[in-house]
Design a protein around this nucleic acid. Structure first.
Lengths: 362, 362
DNA sequence: GTACCGTTTGGAAACGTTTCCAATCTCAAC
DNA sequence: GTTGAGATTGGAAACGTTTCCAAACGGTAC
């Protein structure tokens, strides 16, 4: 029953009564062959159920026809959708996708790229903690391996499929300002390991300042806090003078609303909330979520297309940032009565819980 | 600048002044070597930044150290999380994950497996449209390749990491019945290409009947209908005598609520809604979603663990279905006044929109 | 000094391809 | 019947490993 022995091109050649070289030429359509032998080889191949060995090919051609992809986590739908986009572009090109997750760990990160390199990938599509500081990524560049980033601002000459987080965040500040909010906060997960969050905060902060709002409070949540409404509610309670919160992703924005309900705040009357990413569920909610709408799948597609060009030797074109769109929603309104008895601007933020990393210069 | 030439073990051997075989033994710790030569080889390798060529290794050892994974789509968080689970188990084992998406297409499906096989994967983790009818999957079995399923009921002797959709769906029927619902409907996407949906419907149907409820109406939605609340609302309106809807996933359950609002129905007063999957956002909603909670990540982990065992030659243990859990929520209540002026049971369902595939036998 | 045993060592084959190049074949023109 | 051009063909090398096996070496016991 164990029909283990894979059939090789040698078997095909023998059965067709020709040389290996000829069989190879026929099967690849890569050289001359008489109609006669051509037919024999094709028959033999199909009789034997022959298929090429990727290993043999890779060794000989020095191309693995494989693209490596590193993302922080597939449990985050944003990255999952991006990978789906990559898939769509790659499928049909003959390239296969080798995938790896870092779980937001800056060391695992680098290690994963090394592993991918060792697999002889023909290209790399990467979102990592600190692409500018990755030794493995530098090595890839030194080897002239095509590399395409996702979600990051372009770095180091590497093309990146991304949205301009800084600019998008400024939009949010403008929306808050237009409605009359003064005191705001920025909520984020893993501030230290996400340049996206940092850029969003930087843009938000810069625009708040430019528009004369108080500097936003910066709150970095632990995983546990984000997923436990009660804990999140405690944190929110300490921000009782904030009237508007910018959450660095939609999931957080939804969690914030739950937490707000727990301490008796109404959204948007007592607290306005804006998210980031634009996941579809946000639109379907009872109280539709205001957010920055992005297109992660398009990012994946763009990154893959850029990479394909590079593998063909076409110089990596730096693509402009992808468009984003402020989607308004019922979570956004003028500041309500919660603070209306206090019209004098007090020192703020009351407590910056943590700010572990330098911010991008606005 | 183009330091293209990858260093091979031959380079290392030359620099260390020893034979290739010796270098290989040292680097793999696979045989004897004097302390002296060992040190020289290690130094040479690190000086040269040597790393093994996966292609060479794969060719010689006939193992690619690669696992292929096929899922319908990564845009569905359920599958994305499962893949994340696989990743977690695989990382550190030396195996890499080659990923492929079928987009719910039963032909692409089979094709994708063939491609994966051609890549010489050492194992396969699969969720597909019709695993029992896939020629490529049969081929894999014939080649003695370890195969592990996800989400499917075990088929054909292949182990599968799954939940018992049939049983879980019966739970939902019981909940509806306990609250006094009589007329229900089952909403699904891609009924034809998802045995999960079919099994859920079958279980739901069987238990409704067993408990004396009306047979549930079966509604298969197109992608467009599911994502356009207005269209969904029209469909819902035709079901105006249903008091409870079982949606075959949480996204759909949330969309149904939006659609219900559009036609002035309140949830749960006018309509009870139960989902499936148990995505976390459901818990955080203003009206927490009643649903069957499952653990896709655990399914991925289990599938990967089973596969690893098989690659080690351990006989594939058929694992029992993973646990699920009925999570109640505010979308579930006794039937409200919408039908209270009609206490005589009329023929039902009024319109079964489509039922394209045989149902699993209850 | 010789014989023997155990430890290290490296040459060479094999894995499945592709491709270079020389050999063979076909056929027309002389 | 030769010759040469052009079309086919297949042997062999190369890709980077691992591993078999025989050779070389180091030391001990006689």
């Amino acid at each position: 029953m164990s029909q283990k022995a894979k059939t090789t091109i040698k078997d095909v050649a023998r059965r067709a009564g020709c040389g290996i070289a000829t069989a190879s030429r026929v099967l690849n359509n890569s050289g001359p062959a008489s109609a006669d032998v051509r037919k024999r080889v094709e028959k033999a191949a199909s009789d034997l159920g022959f298929s090429f060995s990727a290993a043999g090919r890779a060794l000989q051609s020095r191309r693995s026809m494989t693209v490596g992809c590193l993302v922080p986590s597939l449990a985050n739908p944003v990255f999952a959708e991006a990978v789906q986009g990559i898939q769509e572009v790659l499928s049909g090109t003959g390239y296969q996708l080798l995938i790896s997750c870092s779980n937001y760990d800056g060391a695992a990160d680098n290690q994963a790229i090394e592993t991918l390199l060792a697999k002889d990938v023909d290209g790399l599509i990467v979102t990592m903690v600190a692409p500018d500081r990755s030794a493995a990524l530098r090595l890839a560049k030194a080897r002239n391996l095509p590399v395409s980033l996702m979600f990051h601002d372009p770095i180091d000459g590497l093309p990146s499929a991304h949205v301009d987080n800084f600019e998008a965040a400024r939009d949010v500040a403008r929306q808050f300002a237009a409605l009359g909010h003064q005191r705001t906060a920025f909520l984020s997960l893993r501030f230290a390991s996400s340049d996206r969050s940092r850029n969003r905060y930087a843009g938000f902060h810069a625009e708040c300042r430019a528009l004369g709002l108080c500097d936003p409070a910066l709150i970095e949540l632990t995983e546990a806090e984000a997923h436990t409404p009660e804990k999140l509610a405690q944190i929110l309670a300490q921000l009782d003078r904030a009237t508007a919160i910018f959450a660095s992703n939609d999931f957080l924005a939804i969690a914030v609303q739950k937490a707000a309900r727990l301490i008796g705040w109404r959204v948007p009357d007592d607290l306005s909330v804006v998210g980031f990413d634009g996941i579809e569920i946000g639109r379907l909610l009872d109280v539709p979520l205001a957010t920055i709408e992005t297109a992660p799948e398009a990012m994946g597609r763009q990154a893959a297309e850029t990479l394909l060009k590079m593998t063909q030797g076409i110089a990596a074109p730096q693509t402009p940032p992808l468009p984003y769109h402020f989607r308004t929603g019922a979570t956004l309104a003028r500041p309500g009565p919660k603070i209306h008895d206090d019209d004098q601007v007090a020192p703020w933020p009351p407590s910056v819980l943590s700010l572990k990393t330098d911010l991008k210069q606005g």
